[in-house]
Amino acid sequence: MYPRPFEYVRAGSVEEALDLKSKTGGRFIAGGHSLLPMMKIRVTSPETLVDIGRLDDLRGISANGGFTIGALTTHSMVASEGGNGFPAALKEAAGMIGDPQVRNRGTVGGNVAHADPASDLPTVFAALGATMTATSKGGTRDIGAADFFTGLFESALNDDELLTAIEVGSEGGGRGSAYAKLFNPASRYAVAGACAVVDLDGDGTCTSCTVAVGGLTPKATVLGSLASAVVGSRITEATAEAAGQAARAEVGDDVMGDVYAGVEYRRDMLGVFVARALTAAASRAV
């Protein structure tokens, strides 16, 4: 399976990447693990690829109160991140993407910019309230995760922008997070995925709760109705199950089915995985 022919140029800096993009009208490629498979089946056929894979300044995770994740950081780097307070859900989700080979090449920025609804990281970044940094020739622009994912394979990035970093807060001090998903056994993409972030007080009572879901919805979506099912109580099996029910109700008909997993099945599974994510997040909130 060969993609259509294309021109290939390699950028040596972010500035050069932006220049090459505007001159050629091409597409950025980093690890290529979202774009290249789509080019092989000719769903997309860019005339030019601007390779940003050598922009080493964009690779790595730095701690600064929270954490800044460079766009070229690979999933395997995130999965093995040992930083104190690094969000557990993010580490966990990165380790569940694809398989070891995919995690070695696939990048966080590429994954997020691709905005695949079945992908894991958009769900996690939505729940964590991450901030995406988009760089253009005019400077940088911060986009909240809730505004970043605008639809099926669509993000708020403009044509003249490159996603360069993602910022997340740190965990601990009563906050915990977890990601749980039912995955397609061949592709490992999420059939239904849920990320929970909870704050517990000294008694174990939940003081705040954010749950985002993906896999079955057209984009990563924060569910607003769950907080009322959970905040003010301890997270027990019963509260987790009630949250799962609330999740099922809130996604309602906004669910995509496919030949492997129909709408009802996905919605049912969402309840299960919301409950699992909540329970795991609570157990980590110390």
Partner: peptide, 23 residues
């Protein structure tokens, strides 16, 4: 040729990658 099967796995700079999913 889709990136699922791993028969094309090689090491690139010491890391296992699927050589059908890299130019």
């Amino acid at each position: 040729e889709t990136g699922y099967c791993g028969a094309c796995t090689v090491h690139v700079d010491g890391k296992a990658v699927k050589s059908c999913t890299m130019f």
